[in-house]
Design a protein around this nucleic acid. Structure first.
Lengths: 342, 342
DNA sequence: ATGAAAGCGCTAACAT
DNA sequence: ATGTTAGCGCTTTCAT
């Protein structure tokens, strides 16, 4: 069922059918109705390839995520709500969202190159930005509309939204310092992902602001998942002078950390203060309850989508052009994990 | 940069360029090398729309998931490892995987209709099959290669893979019966998803096989997520004659169930026996440890991908044609949650 | 208001 | 072994 079939069926030209379907003004109202009715009845939907080839647009937005060893087990619980938010915006504009899954064994930049060159999508949301991210240069050069979820040192004129790691680090250090802690450790991802650098810097600044000397031995690096938390807890316990508190930058680390501590009969909140990162279904289940930070991922998705569209000329009427560079706040959720006596 | 530009640059015809790039035999070795080198140097990648239009194929496989209220928070942790497995197979054949996210507010059948009619993908994996699933009829009629993750009562000649709910129900009931339980409850999703029916039927059969009468009051229905587990635990406690054991059909239910039980000072394994469904990172964290079932989601993804390709003529040489109808086994992971005295 | 026709980028059939 | 050309389905420009 092509547009040609439909036109033949109605005994009018394909040009008129096309115009009718696309809501052009110069078509007889009666004709339009006939066309729409027939299209619906016969189940005609335009072939996207033909359309894309002619118009140079696909009506599809890609959200690139990497199924790394770190995210494969747990990343979904972060991204699904974000997707849901993104999609709720796109639906209004007849845009489809596809998740572009860059596999473990492929270079993100190479994957992106292929996606873009094949004209798969009109725009992109990319996540897990690295300190220096070649994808950004590439997309800027190709003039593909995009937004990043995460900051990068790679400069240029592009929109981004990132979580407020500074705010989290500051609030966490201040809270712990206020409770009398000075041996405050931090757990960051071992990878080149930018948030690790940002979080570490903010942590250092917050330490300084609270008159606490920075101790490089208190920076622990591992996978940003449960296993990483487990490893870090082990490393913490192996220190000569054990920290009295630890701040995590990933929600999944908390699970492994708790587990490893329990194995050594160390109780968060009693023997060591713990501040987790994002509140999640899992974290709400930890005992003692985890002090962590709340964020609406769906709202984040909505803002990501709206910000991306605001950079695309075709959607200027709905979303006035603005370059978004946004730090997304998180809200402290006090728990028991950092409330023990020192 | 189109194929025309590339041809002009090399001063040969676009036909030869196309043949060289597509590895056709009838092209001079030297010419081929020149073409490939220039393509690489100039960053030429064929436009997918042009290609699709001509060949009628997109080299893309879609994996349709629904971000329902149930899956949005937790479904990702199930699907990501499956995706990873699927992708590891597709990569070998230069196929791309896209996750097609059907939003909360769209009818799955309508969404699928659009995806198919637009010729977005060459094949499909669909999940969360319902008891009677119109998507299956639709895809069969359109002759789109697809495989379902999940069985359905909708008949026809199509491949499917599903988890061994019967095996899980049987093993769980037998285990509990062996421990002396006869008031064994079950928790299933309230939706029309087929696995609920399958699990319930298998549970009834297993009860009969163990000489236990079926009691409809012991069938609890709610969301297949943490909240659902919480609600069900409340309903269990509200029963006049409380069951002494409960079997869950969803991994996330266990979290809420435990939480609600704790609130009433009911301890799984001591006051009530609990057998969960799939072992997950979260479930490994419950205390007392949850008796549940283990599955390699990555391997499941690999089998899904291979089975789908085996139905597609273009891949017959790699995957001989076979119609897969496969029950995927799960392995019991004994825990403490069902080991208390009666 | 409608029809006719060009052309988006590509591949494959046909010609040389 | 290479060049030429038709045509995939669609939108849009130009006629009428």
């Amino acid at each position: 069922m092509s547009i040609r079939d439909l036109a033949r069926h109605l005994d009018i030209s394909i040009g008129t059918v096309s115009r009718a379907l696309n809501g052009k003004a110069d078509v007889n109202q009666e004709t339009r109705e006939r066309v729409l009715e027939a299209a619906k009845r016969l189940g005609y939907v335009p072939n996207q390839s033909g359309r894309s080839l002619r118009q140079g647009t696909t009506n599809t937005i890609g959200f690139m995520i990497e199924s790394t060893i770190e995210t494969v087990d747990t990343g979904g619980s972060f991204f699904m709500p974000v997707f849901e938010g993104v999609q709720s915006v796109f639906r209004r504009h007849h845009l489809d969202l596809v998740a572009l899954l860059c596999g473990t064994d492929e270079e993100p930049a190479a994957y992106l190159n292929r996606v873009v060159a094949r004209r798969f999508v009109d725009g992109l949301i990319i996540s897990a930005t690295t300190r220096h991210d070649p994808r950004i240069d590439f997309l800027l050069e190709r003039k593909i509309p995009f937004i990043t979820l995460g900051r990068s040192e790679t400069t240029g004129d592009y929109p981004w939204i990132d979580l407020d790691f500074e705010g989290v680090a500051t609030a966490a250090v201040e809270r712990l310092a206020g409770l009398g802690h000075s041996r405050i450790a931090i757990a960051v991802p071992a990878s080149d992902i930018n948030l690790g650098y940002i979080f570490l810097d903010a942590y250092k600044q917050a330490l300084a602001a609270n008159g606490i000397a920075f101790n490089p031995d208190y920076v622990f690096r591992s996978y940003a998942n449960e296993e990483g938390g487990y490893q870090i807890a082990g490393a913490v316990l192996a220190q000569r002078q054990t920290p009295t508190a630890i701040i995590l930058v990933n929600e999944n680390m908390a699970l492994g950390l708790y587990r490893r501590f329990y194995e050594s009969d160390i109780h968060p909140g009693r023997n060591i203060a713990v501040i987790g990162f994002r509140e999640s279904i899992q974290s709400r289940f930890l005992s003692p309850t985890l002090t962590c930070f709340r964020i609406s991922l769906r709202d984040l998705g909505i803002k990501l989508a709206e910000s991306l569209l605001s950079t695309m000329p075709a959607y200027e009427e709905h979303y006035p052009h603005e370059k978004v560079e946004l730090i997304w706040p998180l809200e402290l959720v006090p728990g028991e994990s950092d409330q023990g006596e020192l």
